[in-house]
Simulated assay, not measured.
Amino acid sequence: MLDLIRHGEILELNLARPPANALDPELVGKLRVAIESAPAHGVRALLLSGRPGMFSAGLDVPVLLRLDRNGMTAFWHEFFGLCAALARSPIPIAAAIGGHSPAGGAVLAIFCDYRVMANGPFKIGLNEVQIGLSVPGNIQFALRRLVGTYRAERLLVVGAMVDASEALRVGFVDEVVEPEQVVPRTREWLEGLLKLPAQAMTNTRHIARADLAEVFADARAFAIDEFVDAWFSAESQATLKALVARLKGGK
């Protein structure tokens, strides 16, 4: 489900939940724990990866639709906790996006320090609106940091999915390389960062990401109940169930 691969001072967190690395409660919990515990084990940087062709398909909607309100409340607390772990990590995190990265997959990527995406027929985006969900303010903030206010609005409101070249053009990702180079190049970027004077790099990074960290400073501001209400709304449930039906029909 989550493979931990050590590369010296870099720890690769490889999403390994076939077929699409969809985020269910267990994977979200394991990923959060791995991120939060890494510095205590001598890790100086994290590399988040998926499988060739698929970084993460986002939330595991079929699994989540089976949860009751208490279960969904617990899940959203854990998911926003994962976002907070990424946003507030004391060590750098880079995303090796080897394939498609919709919705929750894109969320993981935008909270990282750096994003390397595979060239090819792959798309990335926060397409929550298309599947009947709104995008929380703290996640919208993270996207605005990358692409700017107006561009973020245009992408978010229609739930746009963009290919690698467009993602690079608008600043959604930092580099586009051939698929087989995604993980090596991401690792190379992190290694370059770790060669810099450690205290200067760490302090400067802390200041540069202070705005992002502040968004997740208080868990009480996450509006979990409001988001759970939206999840169980008639519109969202109908759209999500229609999505699951289409997925089943495509098998």
Rank of each mutant, 00 (worst) to 15 (best):
Gly105Met: 10
Gly132Tyr: 04
Thr149Tyr: 10
Val176Ile: 05
Val182Gly: 02
Asp218Trp: 11
Ile207Met: 04
Pro197Ser: 03
Glu166Ala: 02
Ala219Glu: 15
Ala160Val: 04
Leu133Asp: 11
Glu128Val: 01
Val183Trp: 00
Pro197Glu: 01
Val116Ala: 00
Glu128Trp: 13
Arg220Ala: 15
Gly171Ile: 08
Val162Ile: 14
Gly125Glu: 09
Leu156Tyr: 10
Ser101His: 10
Arg151Ile: 12
Leu196Tyr: 01
Arg185Gln: 07
Arg115Gln: 12
Thr202Asn: 06
Gly132Phe: 02
Arg220Thr: 12
Ala200Ser: 10
Glu166Trp: 00
Phe172Arg: 03
Gly137Met: 05
Ala200Trp: 06
Met161Val: 02
Ala208Ser: 10
Leu190Glu: 09
Arg144Ile: 09
Val176Pro: 00
Val129Pro: 06
Trp189Ala: 08
Leu108Glu: 02
Gly120Lys: 03
Asn138Ile: 12
Arg151Gly: 08
Leu196Lys: 12
His100Glu: 13
Phe172Ala: 11
Arg154Gly: 01
Gly120Phe: 04
Asp218Ile: 09
Leu168Ile: 04
Gly148Glu: 05
Val162Gly: 04
Leu194Gln: 05
Asn203His: 09
Ile139Pro: 08
Val177Arg: 02
Thr202Ala: 12
Ala109Cys: 13
Glu191Ser: 11
Val147Thr: 08
Ala142Tyr: 15
Glu188Tyr: 07
Lys123Leu: 11
Ala109Leu: 12
Ser101Ala: 15
Arg145Thr: 10
Ala198Trp: 02
Gly125Ile: 10
Glu175Gly: 00
Gly105Cys: 06
Cys112Phe: 13
Arg151Phe: 03
Ile110Leu: 15
Thr202Cys: 06
Leu143Gln: 15
Gly105Thr: 07
Ala208Glu: 12
